[in-house]
């Protein structure tokens, strides 16, 4: 707590110094992940009010964001999947997490209420593999004594487009189900063995709401805003915790960031007892030796301001701000690895 207050004071001082120091406003551009677009644009608007610096973010998808930063047409890229160490090294790039969000399995089965159905990661993977075909399969029934499960076929819904949501979801499934790992692996899209594809979070949630006996996965905010029933997923510590900002933050706090070089760590299946197992982050990607130093400086200032002052904005959109120790680690990384 004291650390965070001290941090905020320093940040306010720095921000004030910088905003008085820069005589005219700069324009910086970023591109990439659509997952962070809502929060980045909210931050950008608030940051613009404070500093008159303009941050333009194009939500073109992680793949596009990576391509644009590699071509140096933008000041920062944003990707839902971390770049590998060799890629970072080859292009002289660095990356750091920006904000945290959760992915929840949403269901539409009879009158089952949000949080009533319990699944283990392995069972969830077996449903998506097509090994478990009906809701009253013994594997599901065994986890849910007292819940009335229909004998209907399960309609599996996945993302049709490549997405960071799928990346983290499949990454989790490959961590908890060996069969999944060998057959499908993980990525922004995989060779889904069964089910129908919806375009975007809205496509998946619309399919699940419409088709009975269906299961899908969406960002937490979509499940919340659409009042959808979600299933609990057993975490690495063997517990069933509710998906909310606390359990997402717990996942971020217990993930082993300290030993992850360039923050190359996927947060799924985090070890903490209160952690939600399918928690995700988005990485900002920037040049360690930027060509346009002034713009890079503004970009760092923007992220610094967002991490320290933008927490309320993030929370209002159902994202989880980075925990203070992680922010401290990121700021240390900026000092040690980036020129400025």
């Amino acid at each position: 707590m004291t650390i965070s207050i001290k941090h905020r004071l320093i940040a306010v001082g720095l921000a004030a110094g910088l905003s008085f120091g820069s005589a005219h406003a700069t324009n910086i551009t970023g591109a990439g992940s659509s997952f962070v677009y809502p929060v980045l644009s909210k931050w950008a608007a608030a940051y613009h009010d404070k500093t008159s610096n303009q941050v333009n973010y194009q939500s073109i998808g992680s793949g596009g964001g990576i391509a644009q930063i590699k071509a140096s047409t933008v000041d920062f890229g944003a990707s839902d999947a971390p770049l590998k160490a060799e890629d970072l090294k080859q292009f002289g790039l660095g990356q750091f997490p920006v904000v945290i969000g959760g992915i929840v399995p949403v269901i539409h089965v009879g009158n089952i209420m949000p949080g009533q159905l319990k699944l283990t990661g392995k069972v969830l993977a077996d449903i998506y593999l097509g090994n478990i075909k009906t809701w009253n399969d013994p594997a599901i029934a065994q986890l849910n004594p007292g819940v009335t499960l229909p004998s209907s076929k399960i309609t599996v819904v996945h993302r049709a487009d490549g997405s960071g949501t799928s990346f983290n979801f499949t990454n989790y499934l490959s961590k908890v189900n060996a069969d999944w790992k060998t057959k499908l692996g993980f990525g922004t899209t995989v060779a889904w063995p069964t089910g129908i594809g919806g375009k975007g979070n809205e496509g998946v949630s619309a399919f699940v709401r419409q088709a009975s006996n269906s299961i899908g996965y969406v960002e937490y905010a979509y499940a919340l805003q659409n009042h959808m029933a979600y299933a609990l997923v057993q975490n690495a510590a063997g517990r069933y915790v509710a998906p909310d900002s606390n359990s997402f933050a717990a996942a971020a706090a217990t993930a082993d960031w300290k030993s992850a070089k360039d923050f190359n760590l996927i947060m799924t299946n985090a070890p903490g007892p209160d952690a939600w197992p399918i928690t995700a982050t988005t990485w900002a990607i920037m040049y360690k030796r930027p060509k346009n130093a002034a713009n890079a400086k503004t970009a760092f200032d923007f992220f610094k301001w967002s991490f320290e002052q933008g927490q309320e904005q993030a929370k209002s959109l159902d994202y989880v701000p980075l925990p203070p120790p992680l922010v401290a680690q990121i700021e240390a990384y900026w000092k040690s690895d980036f020129r400025n």
């Binding site: 073109i60 998808g61 992680s62 793949g63 596009g64 049709a160 487009d161 490549g162 899209t189 375009k199």
Partner: peptide, 12 residues
């Protein structure tokens, strides 16, 4: 056309 529209954005 649907495949292209779905996958082109994130084709890395």
């Amino acid at each position: 056309a649907a495949t292209i529209a779905n996958e082109f954005n994130e084709a890395s």
